[in-house]
Design a protein around this nucleic acid. Sequence first.
DNA 1: AGCGATAACTGATCGCCGTTAAGTGAACGG
DNA 2: CCGTTCACTTAACGGCGATCAGTTATCGCT
Lengths: 224, 224
Amino acid sequence: MTTTKRPSSAVDAPDPPGRRRARKGEGDLLRDEILDAAERLLVEKGNKDSVTIRGVAKAVGVSAPSIYLHFADKEELLYETCRRVFDILNQRLMEAVGAGEGTVVERMIRAGRAYIAFGLEHPGQYVTLFGPGPADSAPLDLDDSDPGVQAFGLLVGLLEAGVESGELKSDTDVIAAAVAVWAAVHGTVYILISKRGIAEPVMTIDEEAVIETALSMMLDGLRA
Amino acid sequence: MTTTKRPSSAVDAPDPPGRRRARKGEGDLLRDEILDAAERLLVEKGNKDSVTIRGVAKAVGVSAPSIYLHFADKEELLYETCRRVFDILNQRLMEAVGAGEGTVVERMIRAGRAYIAFGLEHPGQYVTLFGPGPADSAPLDLDDSDPGVQAFGLLVGLLEAGVESGELKSDTDVIAAAVAVWAAVHGTVYILISKRGIAEPVMTIDEEAVIETALSMMLDGLRA
DNA sequence: AGCGATAACTGATCGCCGTTAAGTGAACGG
DNA sequence: CCGTTCACTTAACGGCGATCAGTTATCGCT
């Protein structure tokens, strides 16, 4: 016990090694610190399996079991971590769709570009949230606050508007089309993420060209 | 040591618990048994993290370290496991493309349907092979024997034929288009797999409708 | 100022994992 | 019959997610 004491003089060290215990009503402070650390580690490691409960705890400057005071298990921690950034995605999607107006097709293109760009900016969170979860994963009763549900609703609304205005094929099954469109942009994000930095199978992939091809392909196919 | 002996009388038990040691030149027998067991477990668990080296070893009736006599690590074991089934996919794709002839668009639709159907039939292997690997994953120098490279080459060839025959837009960047098409079918498979058996976000998804919508959307967008 | 209650957090431990090192015994060639 | 070699095992390491039984700091209250 030579150096380990911190009742006073605790403002210089930022946080990680020694952390001041939260005061009585402020237990939730730790929750946010945990989420921040988990997000930082997820971005840096790029892979959810490389983010460990123990690692997050050490980054926060706390013991591993403390995590469980705020999250039921690792899955919940990661979900909440990614959820925060996906709320930002929804914001961006709504901006892309709402601002500048234009035709439905133009708005969909903008939204698609925003979605893909966002996914490529946050690959760790993207594959964590949309990647394969445990096979036994609970029915995952998602409500309207779930960012995925919101984004899907936005897409369905857009397609409905397009059909109604005659801009899109009138016999479109909007639900099926929404899933198909989502699948196409999702696949684009996923493949571009996966292929980042691996030996190119045939040649270097021009990301921009792929994105624009995918988007125009999709929408030409939907147009009336 | 009451019941544990097996020098003789070893024909009744099939394999799992006690396994006859292979003879001198037949060490590779175990390799195939391991692959079979790994495939079985992967199909049954649906998730690569639920397939453990120890579990595979027990299923074969062998000790865990024996796996490492035939595979460098778990990743290699899983890769080889999935590779076997993806060779079958390539076969099916070539049948779909080659047989019955027809226009390029027709052949692409058949291939797309075959790809998606295959992915949905083998979800465990699909997400294992195409899902997120470790972030540090080696450049993965894939050669022409890799099923992914072969399938991609098939797709590129098809697109080139379509452009040449005037069936597809003449200004198509075939590489970018191939990636985009692959992304779209991949995304469709991935999303339909992920959404299997979870509480539907908006309503029940009609898989057939999604598949047909995705395929026609794609190809209408590519057509001249 | 002192004290019991309670919120916030820790140390020790469990059972599992992937992986490695060292050893054992059966099958073969000579 | 013997030594080598192949096929495999036992034991163990370090790290993982998770649990449980404490421990300590802060609070309201007298």
